[in-house]
Nucleic acid binder design. Structure first.
Length: 591
RNA sequence: GGCCCCGUGGUGUAGCGGUCUAACAUGCCUCCCUGUCACGGAGGAGAUCGGCGGUUCGAAUCCGCUCGGGGUCGCCA
């Protein structure tokens, strides 16, 4: 048979009519009419119809043997389809290949699930036969989308003068942050590497090295429990820049996003992306990653109820708490109020006050406890119209914020206020530098310990560390945190002060981060950067619900790769070589 | 570790105390069919309902435990 170059199936158009071509691919579908046989041949570029006419007896006989997913090579001319038989659903629908010869390159067993459609299939089964799953149109599209996004990022950053530099995956373990994956060192018995959770320190050292503008599309490893948007190994777009302040980093990142969305999806992301301080985000939306596809802003009502007789509000305010509420521009029934109350309770609120705004005034079980003045104030603050409902929480500021944040989200969902097609990016800036750990009560870094405090708050470092704001920022899309970054510390003394704010002694700091402090002593430029989860971004761009749908070979919730059955029991010989011994060699039961 | 959801021929579903010796679609096998495109038509094979135990005269259907999968909270500096 001929050896002309391979033609991608999906590329054939009417313009190629008359040319002889060779296509290679999988049998996607067969329609055997008895005489004529039609076979759709698929490769990753698309589908083309091949006609087997009894005139070409040899080819026709082979065509009759073909089964789904058989790998074939077809040779023949591209011909225009007879008038009226074109398929307008297919890009290649105006033509077909008139098979003069066909090779069966490999026969296929019937697949365990339909490869030629995108219907729902048990995910375990899909993962076990991932190579078949990836043949399906949706997955092939997702992987190619991912490639195009990564390429758009690289093109953009290259144009902006960034250099992609690889950093080590096997690194020193640091106890902060997520649990590390450990890798024992054969040459250093008893010593371990950790798989990098992020290239953070290396990229800062690249700035000290004068690389100026660095980026990397990099695999990161975190040994934590899995979620729809969390895998043990995931990919970050990581970047760092020297001689910059917040605006410079935000500008590059948002233009990069705009470029990617334009290039890949043809969608315009308006820039500059709006910004919100962390304090405002909590006050107005109750969360640090607000979904701005809908309104329902939270309002501060404390001053209105400053002198209230209503015991619940009075007690909350007396204890230093706040009263905040939000107006729901709809009549909400008792059942829905119950659901909202449940949402508020889940975040620690004791309850949810509510008032129905009617033509004649307010109606609520608690109206009688309020003065005319208070109710007038409520009306003025919320601009409630007849038919609206106003809900409120009285509690400590953080509880009120969280509870109303959840109420806001639940109300938007149940009332259908979310515009699913909208893309609402927002920067959340001025995060706190430190936070108090919920379980241990210790002061920990809110972002990471290399984040610079805001200059005007430096004086508070020793006295009121929790009030210090950081030069840190998050990028949020539709209520999902895409990534975060900060302007870093580049001064060894400042770095020491932040370490000591975290309870580290000078010796601790020198022992664990001496290399960084040392580097800063040799002329470190001011620098800052950003990183975001590429898997999540691709997931959102693809309209998928989990990042597993945009990863070729993902792991399941137990962090297993079910196709190759990893992880596998440790080989005693390997353990011996590493100087390791299992304390409790309990092995999971085989499947 | 907690909570929630799911588990019926290869695949996707229906059935939710007796008429289920389990239905439908698709896939698979055989035959017919020369313009189909989720081709069409005729016929056939294929599941004891994840597993174990219990309730009941009777269980795919109810209950308990268990295994497997997923979601989520904790966790993810």
């Amino acid at each position: 048979m001929s050896r002309t170059p391979r033609t991608p199936c999906g590329a054939l158009r009417i313009a190629q009519a008359g040319q002889s071509v060779d296509v290679y691919g999988w049998v996607h579908r067969r329609r055997d009419l008895g005489g004529l046989i039609f076979i759709d041949v698929r490769d990753r570029s698309g589908i083309v119809q091949v006609k087997f006419d009894p005139v070409h007896a040899q080819a026709h006989a082979t065509g009759g043997e073909l089964r789904l997913e058989t790998v074939i090579h077809v040779h023949g001319p591209v011909v225009q389809r007879p008038a009226g038989t074109e398929n307008k659903e297919l890009p290649t629908g105006a033509i077909e290949i008139d098979a003069q010869a066909v090779d069966i390159l490999n026969r296929a067993q019937p697949p365990p699930f339909a490869v030629n459609e995108d219907g729902v299939v048990d995910e375990q089964l899909r993962l076990r036969y991932r190579y078949l799953d990836l043949r399906r149109q949706r997955m092939a599209r997702n992987l190619q989308l991912r490639h195009r996004i990564a390429k758009a990022i690289r093109d953009f950053l290259d144009d902006e003068g960034f250099v992609e530099i690889e950093t080590p995956v096997l690194i020193r373990s640091t106890p902060e942050g997520a649990r590390d994956y450990l890798v024992p060192s054969r040459l250093n018995p008893g010593h371990v590497y950790a798989l990098a959770q992020s290239p953070q320190l290396y990229k800062q050292l690249l700035m000290v090295a004068g690389m100026d503008r660095y980026f990397q599309i990099v695999r990161c490893y975190r040994d934590e429990d899995q979620r729809a948007d969390r895998q043990p190994e995931f990919t970050q777009l990581d970047l760092e820049m020297s001689f910059v302040a917040e605006d410079d980093v935000l500008d590059v990142v948002e233009r990069c996003f705009a470029h990617v969305w334009k290039q890949v999806l043809g969608v315009v992301v308006p820039t500059p992306i709006r910004r919100l301080t962390h304090v405002d985000a909590l006050l107005r939306y109750g969360v640090d990653k607000p979904d701005l596809r809908y309104g329902l802003e939270i309002q501060e009502l404390s001053s209105i109820f400053a002198g209230t007789e209503f015991k619940i509000f009075r007690q909350a305010l007396g204890a230093g708490g706040v009263v905040r509420g939000l107006r729901i521009p709809r009549t909400v029934g008792g059942k829905e109020i119950d659901a909202l109350t449940e949402a508020a309770r889940a975040d620690g609120a004791k309850g949810l006050a509510f008032w129905h705004r009617e033509a004649q005034g307010w109606r609520s079980p608690i109206t009688k406890f309020f003065t005319e003045r208070e109710l007038a104030g409520l009306e003025q603050a919320t601009h409630a119209q007849p038919g609206d409902v106003v809900v409120a929480v009285a509690d400590r500021p953080e509880v009120a914020a969280a509870a109303l944040g959840s109420v806001r989200k639940a109300a938007a969902r149940s009332l259908g206020l979310i515009d699913e097609g909208a893309l609402e990016f927002v920067w959340v800036t001025e995060f706190p530098l430190f936070e108090r750990s919920k379980e241990t009560g210790e002061v920990t870094a809110a972002h990471h310990p290399f984040t610079s405090p805001r200059p005007e708050d430096i004086a508070l470092l020793a006295s009121e560390p929790l009030r210090v704001r950081a030069r840190a920022y998050d990028l949020v899309l539709n209520g999902t945190e895409l990534g975060s970054g900060s302007i870093r510390i580049h001064d060894p003394e400042m770095q020491q002060r932040v370490f000591s704010g975290l309870g580290m002694t000078r010796d601790d700091a020198e022992r664990r981060f001496g290399f960084l402090l040392n580097a800063f002593r040799y002329g470190a430029p001011p620098h800052g950067g950003f990183a975001y989860g590429l898997d999540r971004v691709v997931m959102l761009a693809a309209g998928e619900q989990t990042i597993r749908e945009v990863i070729a070979f993902p792991k399941n919730q137990q962090a297993e790769e079910v196709m190759t059955d990893a992880p596998a029991p440790a080989d005693p010989k390997q353990l011996r070589e590493l100087g390791l011994e299992l304390v409790r060699p309990t092995l999971k039961q085989g499947r």
